[in-house]
Amino acid sequence: MARVDYFHDPNAPKANSLKPAVSTFVQNDTGQLLMIRRTDNNKYAIPGGQQEVGETLAQAAVREALEETGIEIEVTEIIGLYSNPDHVIEYGDGEIRQEFSICFRARPIGGTPRTSSESTEVRWVDSNELDKLDIHPSIKLRIDHGLTRQSPYFT
């Protein structure tokens, strides 16, 4: 399904939905960041997605990372809570969702990188390569917060 992110855009459509989502900031032993290239907008991102009924937020983070990347993770802490009403996501089915995402720090514990229906590329990225990648500003903000290791961020 197509996806368009509006970030601080006065012409953005009005949100009609709010759903809990998660994202994960996963670094390997050498400090490289686990990233995907999304199928819905072709941008690079950290793994993440919507929480499902019957699971905790941490379980959602583990499931989404495994589904999108093939990497098994262990959640270790919260990086931030992202609920900016000036970030809305328009989907091809008419849903326009206000951002509501919890970003976790996690460590890899197994698996092998592989793509999925949600990712056309999975890779470990050095921090000095990040500026060369097409990353949405809302995801870049989470990455910056993960790299600086400050106390949990919230909007």
Rank of each mutant, 00 (worst) to 15 (best):
G92C: 07
E64R: 14
Q98A: 14
F100W: 05
E95N: 00
E74L: 06
I73R: 00
G48P: 00
G54D: 15
I109F: 01
P113Q: 06
E67Y: 03
A58I: 11
E64A: 08
V75C: 00
A60V: 03
G80W: 10
Q98E: 13
Q59T: 08
Q50T: 07
Q98W: 05
E118N: 10
E68N: 13
E72Q: 10
V62Q: 11
D86H: 10
S83K: 10
R114C: 04
I96S: 06
S116H: 00
E90D: 10
R97G: 03
G80N: 08
I102K: 07
G49S: 04
I73K: 05
G94C: 01
S83D: 13
I78M: 11
Q59Y: 06
I102W: 12
Q98C: 09
K43M: 09
A106T: 04
V53D: 15
E72N: 08
I73C: 07
I79A: 09
Q98H: 08
Q51E: 11
T69I: 14
E77R: 15
I89E: 11
E118V: 13
I89S: 13
D86E: 14
Q51H: 13
N84H: 07
R97P: 00
E67A: 08
L57Q: 15
E95K: 05
D86Y: 13
I46W: 01
R105P: 05
S116W: 04
V88K: 10
R97K: 02
A45H: 07
G110M: 06
S116Q: 03
